[in-house]
Computed example of a mutant assay.
Amino acid sequence: MQLTSRFYTALAWATLGTTLLLSLPSAHAVSYNVTDDQRHDHWQSMVLTLGDERHFRAVETHSYADATLSVNATPGVCDLPWLEMRVTLGEIQGESRTVNLVPARLRVDERERVYSVAEFITERADDGFYVHFYLDDIHQLIADMGDGEQIFLGFDQGERDPWYMTFSLEGAGQALTRMQRQCKHAS
């Protein structure tokens, strides 16, 4: 894997730290059909389908050319949305695995920091690197995102300086509301 940005450098150091070789079901490497796509400033809301499977997504693709931040929900469990970041890597990954678990901090604008654990994942046959966040109160974070301007993500790297990313929240309120409404309507 060629390291060409700060993200890749952070990934390399995280990988050298604690590498966990856990097999995961390959849910992300699957290509879903995107329908009902609607733009909301820097965010979009959409429906992802594959056969009878359906998910609803609000996603920010504006801040980085190689990274997205999304909130996702599934009918029947709409009250359990999840936050995910995806970064495009330079090559298709050969295996599905958890690369690392690291402490993470999230903050919307100048609000109180939310402490979390971030799971770094690669998926076989996918050129993406995924970050899943374990959050105690995702509903408050989503509410804050809905009326915020920026979300800041920070990842601890042991003795090295933390690695940060910032995503725009312009249009997030509309995208998140539409995603939640569509999920509940489909349940």
Rank of each mutant, 00 (worst) to 15 (best):
E91L: 11
T61N: 07
P75E: 03
V87D: 01
D136S: 11
S96C: 10
A73W: 02
V77S: 12
V131K: 02
P103F: 12
A104K: 02
P162G: 14
Q140R: 15
G148E: 05
F167I: 05
I121H: 00
V117K: 06
I92P: 00
V34W: 08
V99R: 04
L106I: 09
M165K: 09
E53G: 03
L176E: 04
V87A: 04
L89E: 13
D109L: 07
G76E: 10
F167H: 03
Q38C: 08
Q38L: 09
D127Y: 10
Q93S: 10
Y130T: 03
E112S: 13
V131T: 06
G158R: 10
D52E: 11
W163L: 09
E119M: 11
W82Y: 14
R124V: 09
T61S: 07
S63R: 03
W43L: 00
T68M: 13
E84V: 07
G90P: 04
P75S: 05
R57Q: 14
R178D: 15
V77T: 13
G94R: 10
A58V: 01
Q174W: 05
T98N: 08
R107T: 01
E110L: 13
A73E: 04
H139N: 12
A67Q: 07
Q93D: 06
V102H: 06
V131Y: 03
D156I: 01
Y64R: 02
T122D: 08
Q157D: 06
D156H: 13
A175M: 09
T35C: 04
V47H: 01
R54M: 08
Y134N: 09
Y164H: 15
E110T: 12
A65Y: 07
Q157F: 12
L69Y: 01
A125G: 03
A143L: 08
E53A: 14
D126I: 07
V102Q: 10
M145F: 05
Y115I: 14
L101V: 09
R105W: 14
Y130H: 10
Q157P: 03
E110R: 12
T74L: 08
V47I: 11
G173Y: 02
I138D: 04
F56P: 01
G154F: 08
S168N: 05
G94T: 15
E112T: 12
Q150K: 10
V59G: 02
I138P: 03
D41P: 00
A175C: 05
D37G: 04
R54K: 15
V117T: 13
S116K: 03
G173R: 12
E170P: 00
S45I: 14
E95D: 11
M145E: 02
V99K: 00
T49M: 13
F56Y: 07
V59I: 15
D144P: 00
L101N: 06
R105Q: 14
A118F: 07
E53P: 00
C78A: 08
R113Q: 11
R178Y: 03
D144S: 05
T88S: 15
M145W: 03
R97C: 08
R57F: 07
V87N: 02
L135E: 03
E159T: 07
E84W: 04
R105T: 14
L48R: 08
C78R: 02
G128K: 15
D144G: 01
V108Q: 03
A67K: 11
L106H: 06
E95F: 06
L48N: 00
H139F: 11
S116R: 01
V117R: 04
S70Q: 11
